[in-house]
Design a protein around this nucleic acid. Sequence first.
DNA 1: AAGTTTGTTAACCAAATGGTTAAACTATAT
DNA 2: ATATAGTTTAACCATTTGGTTAACAAACTT
Lengths: 181, 181
Amino acid sequence: MKDQSTEENILQAAVSVFQKKGMSGARMQEIADEAKINKAMLHYYYKSKQKLFEAVFRKAFEKFAPHINQVFNSDKTVFEKITEFTESYISFVMENPYLPNFLIQEINNNPEFASLFFGSEIAPNPLRFKKQIAEEIKKGIIKPIDPRQLLLNLFSLTAFSFVGTGLVRGILDLDEKHSKL
Amino acid sequence: MKDQSTEENILQAAVSVFQKKGMSGARMQEIADEAKINKAMLHYYYKSKQKLFEAVFRKAFEKFAPHINQVFNSDKTVFEKITEFTESYISFVMENPYLPNFLIQEINNNPEFASLFFGSEIAPNPLRFKKQIAEEIKKGIIKPIDPRQLLLNLFSLTAFSFVGTGLVRGILDLDEKHSKL
DNA sequence: AAGTTTGTTAACCAAATGGTTAAACTATAT
DNA sequence: ATATAGTTTAACCATTTGGTTAACAAACTT
C-alpha cells in the first residue's frame, strides 16, 4: 500500500514546518500531521528529529548554493553576474520565501553544525570569483572594491528585503496599509 | 534580603537567553540559571514565559526604535541622516549583536504579536521622513527615489551584514579563516 | 500458498518543560 | 518582640514532546 514515496512526503512536510518554525519551534507531531501519516513513520525513515532536520537543512543548502556558484563559477563579467544574480535570486526567493531566512537563522543558531556544510563539496568556492574581481579592477573595468565587500553588498541588497520583510513592513506600512515592496 | 532588583536581574538574563535562542528555543530553567535564582521567581515577577518574552521584546523594540526615529524625526538633511544612521547603528549593533536578528526573527514568527508594537506609541512614524524626501527631490538635492526603497536599502546595507553574518562568513571564510569584516 | 521483508498504526514511555504550592526566610512597621 | 507583607526556595504537578514497541497489513520471494 505504498504511495510511491512516503519518505519524500515526510521530507516535504518537514521542509514546510522546519522552514517556518525553525529547529526548536518545529514539532514532530505537526510534521506528521502535515504529511498525513503516523508520527512513528518519521522515526522509521529518519531516525530522529535532528536527522530529519539535517535532511531539510541539506536540501535547503543545496537549493541555495547554485545561486552563489552562478556568481562564483560562471564565465560572465562581474557586471553581468550581478545582474543575473539579482534576477535569479529574486525569482528564487519568490518560490522559496522561507528558505534564506531559514538558512541564516539556523546557521546563526548552530555554527558548528553549519560549518559541516560549508566545509563540504557542495559549498561554493569563492576563489575564482576573487581572482576575477582583482583582474577586472586591474583592467579598469570595475572600480576597486574588496570582493568580500562586493559580495556582502550584493547579498544585503537582495536577501535582506526578504529576511527583514516583517520589520520593514511594520515600520513602513503604518500609513500605507497596502504597499507591496 | 532583596538585592535591589531581582526583577531587573531576571529581565537581563531573559534578554540574554531569548535573544540568543528565540522564544521557542529559550528555556525558563536556563534563564533562571543565568540569573542565579530559583525558577519560581520567574513566575513570581513575570507571570509566564510569554509575558517574560513580551518584556524582553518590548525592551529590544524600545532600544531599537530611537535609531529609526533619528532618521525619521531629526532636522538633518537626508544625506546627513544616512551618514549618522549608519554610524550610530553600527556602534549600536556592536554592543547589541543579537538584537536586530532577534527582532527580525520574532517579528517574522509572530506577526500579529509584533503588530501590537508597530501600532503603539513607541513605534517610529515615517510620515515626516517621506515628506522630507519628496521635498529634497523637488529641490534637486537628491536623486528621485521612493522613500521606502531608500529606507530598505539603508537597512539592508547596515543590518544584513550582521543578520547574515553566519552565512556570509561561512561562504567567505573558506579560504580566509581569519577575516573580520 | 507460505514465509519473509517492508510499511504503517495505535498505544505507550521517559524526559523535558512550563507552571504551582506551601513552607521558610527577610525585612519592616507596630 | 511580634505581626505583617514581601521574597525565595524545594518539591511537586500536568502537559508536551521526542522517541519506542508490538502488533498488524501489504507486498515481494520462493
